[in-house]
Design a protein around this nucleic acid. Structure first.
Lengths: 258, 258
DNA sequence: CAGTGGTCTAGACCACTCA
DNA sequence: GAGTGGTCTAGACCACTGG
């Protein structure tokens, strides 16, 4: 009945039918109006309610499912998921941008560059073997040290790193340009600055530092690993939670218990 | 021409055409075969190549775009994204699971529960005003303190918290049951344990701790905020990078510069 | 202005799964 | 067994935007 929609359009409104349905469903879920376990309307009910085709409804529902907001079971229907713990979207900022966002001038200084036949022990455990390039560098905000990093680049997988110029370009930047697409995993923990790190960062020994450890892979090759130390008082990492992240995206990456 | 597909099906293979296209494109990108900036085939090229309809191709491409693997521009085409800095998927684990995964018994102890007319100063800056419930609690692995948390729950937005029983149930668990699909933002930094925190965690004063700060909102209401302290030696946060996370999901959450 | 992606339709068949 | 979601088609019009 009242099928005046397809021909005459609502008016001068292109409000994306698909978006509208999506928003309405999502807000019902986020508001708690539809609690976990609640069954959403069937697709055919929604297509009637919104007077649209099934593909449109399906696109919405599939999207919600992809983000983990709902779970769908054939013959049963679609249900609001129960959040599994907390997952969050973490942004590890680009150092230059982070520094400049605070109104400071970004600086970078290479401290050491060594080619190794074999990586040092504390890197070896991370599955790093063979020839590697060891880089130690400092990131500065104005003149004060902001972060200190120790990096290892796998020369077998990325031989061109041996010819890389890291005097002006930070390894992170260089890698992002050279190594096209990567997967990475991170570990973040708090450590008391040891003698060496404290000296590099010009802070008191024992100062709490954020240590961000990052492994970069490409097609199952270990490309690089880096440990970055940030003085706790100067730095923090932020993350914004959006939805439950679908489990498939979060690989278990088991880390040594200590 | 050669239009033998629609009628006769390939054979006894239900390999999800959509999946196949998706996998092939994705692996080209992840392997570096198609580097950032590379233009993917146009939709009409792909529908020819795979002998399928445009909707099928579009579903694949839209999915890749939603995950940030590609960027699409009308009239121009679809391009492999260049990783913007580092974004990663961070999982803030459920404490019980995290502890038990290490083979220890999880324990929880409520230390303090106070109803406040107004939140303490150091919470106020976070946009918290009005009546609130203050909770301090300890999470244990076997018998040793694992994490110490100070939590504030907005009683205006969640009055039922006043009647909540937090002796057995940790506030985090309780909240997840009460207000399931919330949004949250996190700040993670390293701090030296002060006298108070050190005592609660039974560690030496000055020990580096991970401080995870979390703000929980629902429909733009501040529901709760919590600061959790983890002894640096016992704990780390892990994150797995998958693809570039789409920018829209990462809200800027500006944090006080210090 | 022409070509791309964005959205939408009105069908279809199939596979799974719950009752 | 019946009803749900999962996938797919062969069209269509529109909006944006790059050349």
């Amino acid at each position: 009945m009242t099928k005046s929609k397809p021909a005459s359009k609502k008016a001068a409104a292109p409000p994306l039918l698909y978006r509208r349905i999506r928003d309405e469903l999502e807000s019902r879920i986020r508001s708690g109006d539809w609690p976990p376990g609640h069954r959403l309307p069937y697709e055919y009910e929604l297509m009637e309610q919104y007077d649209c085709s099934r593909m449109t409804v399906n696109k919405v529902m599939a999207g919600l499912a992809a983000e983990g907001l709902i779970e769908r079971r054939r013959k049963a229907g679609s249900f609001v998921s129960r959040p599994r713990g907390d997952s969050a979207l973490l942004l590890i900022p680009v150092m230059r941008e982070e520094v400049e966002a605070r109104g400071a001038a970004y600086g970078y200084r290479l401290l050491e560059r060594t080619e190794l036949k074999a990586p040092p022990v504390d890197f070896k455990e991370a599955g790093f073997t063979g020839a590697a390039l060891l880089l130690r560098a400092l990131h500065l905000a104005d003149a004060t040290p902001f972060a200190y990093e120790e990096r290892l680049i796998n020369l077998k997988a990325l031989p061109e790193a041996a010819r890389g110029n890291f005097e002006k370009t930070s390894p992170g930047t260089w890698l992002m340009e050279q190594a096209p697409w990567t997967e990475a995993s991170h570990n973040i923990k708090a450590v008391n600055a040891g003698r060496d790190v404290a000296k590099k960062l010009a802070i008191a020994e024992g100062t709490a530092c954020l240590r961000v450890e990052r492994f970069i892979r490409r097609a199952s090759d270990n490309i690089s690993m880096v440990r970055q130390y940030y003085p706790g008082e100067l730095y923090q990492v932020s993350a914004t939670f959006t939805a439950q992240i679908r489990a498939s995206a979060a690989k278990p990456v088991r880390v040594a218990p200590d």
